[in-house]
């Protein structure tokens, strides 16, 4: 198996190379094997997902501005997004079976990491916001902002950091062929994540109901709710990924070569964890 054809992903033909490009006489079409097999298959999923997302965003916006049919659009858009995303994912799972698992695995992992850099930059924007304001504010937290209790969030932090380890052990168990153990570790990870979310929800409720502290009261509240909220959303997405991974592991869809979604979920979980640690120090401790 030559490197060149597998790198390009779409077929596993042995590669008979032409020589140097600037000496070669150009392309000679109509060679023995079927080159059309190299072309990626068409797909309806991308355009459908784009449409569904467009509808979802329009619906959400209309809910935010009290336009009557916003809820309908949101439901339609959300269902459309879920269905098309799942359809797309299942197509990729099938397609990857026809490609070089090592190379597509490398591509997917790399792509996912690049994507996480972007996610990090979004969070970075929020962090920049907090640190910039602190640098110029006479008091921080500003006068009138509640003193955030640290005990429960600290427990949440320990849970989330711990869950990064349990996820990692789950991955290791899987790689060593212990699928039962791997699934248990995943369950434990998810349980810790859900507890973390519960703690966050409890804190939000307490702050809003007892301290009457909302996101409209000042920039400290705005930052607090947007950052913990945006992070919480990421935890939820991470939990969703864990659920999908658990389900697929249960069905025996993974093996030592095909387990990208396990890897991706783990990267994502670590990312969410690291962001939380930074967030904990930024908002609660300093």
């Amino acid at each position: 198996m030559s490197l060149a054809s597998s790198r390009n992903g779409y077929a596993m033909h042995t590669n008979q190379t032409v020589t140097a490009p600037h000496v070669a006489t150009g392309s000679a079409h109509g060679q023995a094997h079927d080159p059309a097999a190299h072309a990626p298959a068409p797909s309806l999923w991308p355009i459908l997902l784009a449409a569904a997302l467009g509808i979802l965003v329009t619906g959400l916006y209309q809910i935010a501005t009290d336009i009557s049919w916003g809820k309908l659009l949101t439901v339609v858009g959300f269902l459309g997004t879920v269905v098309t995303a799942l359809g797309w994912a299942s197509t990729i799972i099938v397609e990857r079976r026809q490609m070089d698992p090592l190379q597509t695995g490398v591509d997917l992992r790399k792509g996912f990491l690049y994507f996480l850099i972007s996610e990090g930059a979004i969070f970075g924007t929020f962090f920049a916001h907090v640190y910039y304001l602190r640098a110029f504010a006479p008091h921080w937290p500003p006068v009138g902002a509640p003193h955030l209790a640290t005990t429960l969030p600290a427990i949440g932090t320990l849970l989330l950091v711990g869950s990064s380890f349990t996820f990692n052990w789950g991955h290791h168990s899987f790689l060593h062929g212990k699928k039962g153990a791997a699934k248990n570790w995943l369950l434990l990870t998810a349980a810790m994540g859900i507890t973390f979310l519960g703690i966050q929800g409890f804190e939000w409720g307490t702050l809003q109901n007892f301290d009457k502290f909302t996101l409209k009261q000042g920039v400290f509240g705005s930052g607090y709710y947007i950052m913990t909220g945006f992070h919480g959303l990421h935890v939820m997405i991470g939990l969703l990924m864990i659920a999908v991974v658990y389900f697929r592991m249960e069905r025996g869809e993974f093996n030592d070569k095909y387990h990208f979604s396990l890897t991706a979920a783990e990267y994502y979980w670590h990312f969410v964890d690291i962001v939380w640690v930074a967030l904990f120090f930024t908002i609660y401790l300093f």
Binding site: A4, N8, N15, T17, T19, A20, P35, A37
Partner: peptide, 10 residues
Amino acid sequence: YNFDEIPVVE
């Protein structure tokens, strides 16, 4: 599919 054979650069 772009190229019949993937070229090799020397």
